[in-house]
Design a protein around this nucleic acid. Sequence first.
DNA 1: TTTATTTACGAAAACGGTTTCGTACACGTA
DNA 2: TACGTGTACGAAACCGTTTTCGTAAATAAA
Lengths: 334, 334
Amino acid sequence: MSVTIKTIAKDLNLAISTVSKALGDSHEISPETKKRIFEYAKRLDYVPNAYAGSLKKRKTANIAIIIPEVADSFFSLAINGIESVAQKKGFHVIVYLTHEDQLKEQSILHQLKNGRVDGLLLSVSSGAFSNDHIKYLLNAKIPVVFFDRSCDDIDANKVLTNDFESGYLAAELLINKKCKKISFLSLSDDLSIINQRLKGYKKALVDHKISIDENLIIHCTNDEISNHAKVSKLFQSADKPDAIIGSVEKLTMLIYAVCFDLKVSIPRDLKVIGFSSLDIASFLNPSLTTITQPAFEIGKTAATILFQELEKNSSEPKRTIIIPSKLIERGSTK
Amino acid sequence: MSVTIKTIAKDLNLAISTVSKALGDSHEISPETKKRIFEYAKRLDYVPNAYAGSLKKRKTANIAIIIPEVADSFFSLAINGIESVAQKKGFHVIVYLTHEDQLKEQSILHQLKNGRVDGLLLSVSSGAFSNDHIKYLLNAKIPVVFFDRSCDDIDANKVLTNDFESGYLAAELLINKKCKKISFLSLSDDLSIINQRLKGYKKALVDHKISIDENLIIHCTNDEISNHAKVSKLFQSADKPDAIIGSVEKLTMLIYAVCFDLKVSIPRDLKVIGFSSLDIASFLNPSLTTITQPAFEIGKTAATILFQELEKNSSEPKRTIIIPSKLIERGSTK
DNA sequence: TTTATTTACGAAAACGGTTTCGTACACGTA
DNA sequence: TACGTGTACGAAACCGTTTTCGTAAATAAA
């Protein structure tokens, strides 16, 4: 079969423990013996079994990323950031997609309880369930770092962006463009980032003496067809907005799709701002004004914090790091 | 610490083996004992250690995806397809990014030799190295399924798309639009998919009695800045093309970027076709004519084949499955 | 009634490592 | 000479499972 530490021990007439120690560069083993072992191991191309040691050491060198979806510029860039750190540290990244399904999220987290990974990076899915499954993992002493989408009521490390402020700035830009009826496409009322963005939006309206019209706040779900219907209906209603904010990338693209179908002209009839990290936003028709999240950096920072926690097991106070987004004005709000 | 099979055995006054068998629903254990064990395990919320069993069983329930990058619609959709199958099968997906770096790819594959994963899905990176590191894994009896980017000289399961034909159709469409100087942006000469696409392109030119101008075939690399320079230079040269094919998504977006910078008007001055699975191709300015690969389905199929190989260890003859791409005509070739 | 067979469980080895502990030997020291 | 000390290695326990094998009791077959 495959070459193990036992193969080496037998072939070199040494004890298993000697080989193990030598490969771990222990001082207990003489330089000459070490050399013999290293060279022989190299000759046989010995690679230690990935998980044998993990039993005793309780380390797998695996971390998990749990995200709603991957076909979204924010998350794919965040994965890039995370992976860049993990690769340096020699860690392996297991990716889980929840597809915004809390039950799936629960079941995934449940499986991670017993040693599959050393820690995890979590961007929670939308949906109105409880957070027990997350607290449960924290109880099991598995380090969790939230990124982008977190749970307010859980004390853990978090890497977020300035959602409230971004919502505010987005609305304010539209207000400055003389828009009077600014719609907001929300994904889920239970997601703190969406709520923060929404609160920022509302605050901007209030500050500028524009009354908040709940009919302009559209509560989308994970059902694309029904979202499309809702937005179409809005655009055809008497309450037709003159501007709209997409709180996540998918919804922003939905706006473009509906405008295309209904021949609504952006930005003439409707100004659009989207939360998105799409690098090709400027090639869209029209180019899209975005709140661009620092996706790569959020991922990178979250991973860095996770590794810090993995290295020093002293449980330090939890941190929340905010990395600001940028408002980039383009054609859709001109 | 965490609850193990041993905890249960001790608490219920049973042997460890009895508990293990019961949890595995073995016929050796009486229904009553099983019930006791199941209920107690449930009460303690027992989750088996992920890797303890893997030692003996030589199964980890992990598979690896090795891809050049994730911020590309093809790969992120392929991940979706793979993940959808893996989740059903109860498998966990470790994602590795090579960033088109063969050395990285080699090092990743090397680590996978000893039991970290049960099998892998591979889309090779570009670069002119050897394939020894892949053969090496196959020798170690680790199932490998290539998807999208494969190695011609390795006998393994492959899930590909009709690259040659797609290259042909792309070029032919441009020829039919009366284009005379059709450029082709190649990523790497060592990548079979790119070569196939390029061959299809050349065949179409030959069939339509257009001479092949090697100056119009631009060999890009992984260096974005130098790619940008090369394409800019092409557009400003005397050899300026009237049409161009981007052989991968990133290069297609590069075309848009350069056109924007140089104020080249698409499709008036230059018609563009890109290989891409971007679902927002129709929202680009102008909307992009694409060769759309069935990314999700390729991923899904590749995963399905991998699991088939994992289930029946009989080594059946290797298959190559071709799932055709679609040419979708949009504004950039009008 | 005796002998095979089945049932239901336990003991122990094994998977591939790490780690603790024991010990033989060569030293330096009192 | 007797004693501690350090060096270099081996034996064995252990991590949490699975699996093989052994066996006592119950049941079926002769």
